Amino acid sequence: MNFTLPLEQMSMEEKMAAMESLWDGLCQSAHASEPPAWIREKPG
């Protein structure tokens, strides 16, 4: 899926609401799947 938000036309409140919605979706899907390998890898 590919889409573009009209960020230049959005108010700060609209941008924050979009970010919160994205974050909530990421948090929900994070509980249902394993984290990517680059997160599990330890530095060094």
Rank of each mutant, 00 (worst) to 15 (best):
N2R: 13
N2P: 04
N2M: 07
F3S: 11
F3H: 12
T4I: 10
L5S: 05
L5V: 07
P6N: 14
L7P: 00
L7A: 12
E8W: 04
E8K: 12
E8V: 07
Q9Y: 04
Q9M: 14
Q9K: 14
S11L: 06
E14N: 01
E14L: 00
M16I: 12
M16D: 13
A17H: 08
A17P: 01
A17C: 03
M19P: 00
M19I: 15
L22S: 06
L22T: 08
W23Y: 11
D24Y: 06
D24Q: 14
D24T: 14
G25D: 14
Q28I: 01
Q28E: 13
Q28D: 12
Q28K: 05
Q28M: 10
S29G: 00
S29N: 05
A30H: 09
A32H: 07
A32F: 02
S33F: 02
S33N: 11
E34S: 14
E34T: 13
P36C: 02
W38S: 06
W38K: 05
I39L: 14
I39R: 09
I39H: 03
I39Y: 10
I39C: 03
R40E: 14
R40N: 09
E41V: 09
E41C: 07
E41A: 10
P43V: 00
P43Q: 01
G44S: 09
G44M: 05
